[in-house]
Design a protein around this nucleic acid. Structure first.
Lengths: 179, 179
DNA sequence: CCCAGATGATCAAACGTTTGATGAATCTGA
DNA sequence: TCAGATTCATCAAACGTTTGATCATCTGGG
């Protein structure tokens, strides 16, 4: 730290982005400050939304966000191979395997060997899982709505467009993804 | 599922958002589809960015993303109380406590009892931590830059504006945050 | 037909996170 | 002054995730 600048008295989750970007720019002239600000802000916003949804909707019902994602996928797309579930719910095969132990123990899903390929696993929602997902999703979506209200309809569409563009551009960046 | 619609042959991480939103709208007319799409897209984009940064920058160096966040905060804001570190790096006090065990074991930080309040903890970057953070941050920022290039400068600013507005609106939504 | 290589799932160890409980230090107010 | 309440940190148990290894099952080329 060559140019030492005292941090503001009160450094908070909110104010840290501005502080960090400005400080990094001073310390490291070669830094890409705009990229830094974008990634920092993206992460903070998402972590706030996730924390709120998880702690207000899922945990009180004895669920977790990842568990919900799996049940949600099975609910909407129907029974499918575990490989597909992992792909569309954005987790590795190993992570899903561990997660399924909990979901199976709680009687929410069914694991079955596939007939056409005895290595593969066929996943389905159990009766209990099917009975629970709708109510949980409704609560989840109500909370999503509360968040969405912070933006105008036009702004929501623009946000989605920008995020999609960001994801699409990732292939150019040769980003690393889940196998 | 009243109106059963077969999922497309190939359901991927990318295509699932569209599929899920459309299907949910058919199944549940009362759903707020735009809110659902926004939250789903926000999470996918962020998880791609985080996975890429973690697997291409931090894990290969024996670090983790949360560990980096703590070291980054200490680097930019200087020695501070653990409470502040938890606040600005977005984790609970308990999570930080556990994380510090690893960082301390690896010789990257120093835990010290505060003099003015013997309950409080004073955190500092160790010599080794100080020596390592700059290089890791440079690599991190290069990768951030690659992601940022997917958007035009004007779009990046707009994305940041929208995310900030989303975070600001959260208080209206009475969202739950970390104590 | 058979074997080498690919693929699907699980396991093991290490890690970070959550909630709820516990212990220690400080503060508050009668 | 001092007892009760508050605050800071840690602990414990349960969970989800990562990487790398292992085991079972298919698949394709000789």
């Amino acid at each position: 730290m060559t140019h030492n600048t005292a941090p503001p008295d009160e450094l908070t989750f909110w104010s840290f982005v501005d502080y960090a970007v400005q400080k990094a720019e001073r310390e490291l002239p070669s830094v890409n400050a705009e990229a830094m600000r974008m990634v920092l802000t993206l992460n903070r916003a998402t972590s706030m939304v996730v924390y709120d949804l998880e702690s207000s909707v899922h945990r009180p019902r004895g669920w977790t966000w990842p568990g919900f994602r799996v049940l949600f996928a099975l609910w909407l797309a129907g029974p499918m191979e575990a490989k597909t579930t992992a792909e569309i719910s954005g987790m590795s095969r190993a992570a899903l395997s561990a997660l399924l132990n909990t979901l199976e123990r709680d009687g929410l899903i069914t694991r079955e060997r596939a007939t056409h390929d005895r290595r593969a696993l066929q996943l389905s929602l159990s009766e209990a899982g099917y009975g629970a997902i709708l109510g949980v999703f409704r609560a989840h979506n109500r909370r999503e709505s509360a968040w969405a209200q912070a933006l105008e309809p036009e702004e929501r569409r623009e946000l989605v467009r920008l995020l999609n563009k960001l994801m699409a551009g990732s292939t150019d960046a040769e980003a690393k993804f889940r196998n």
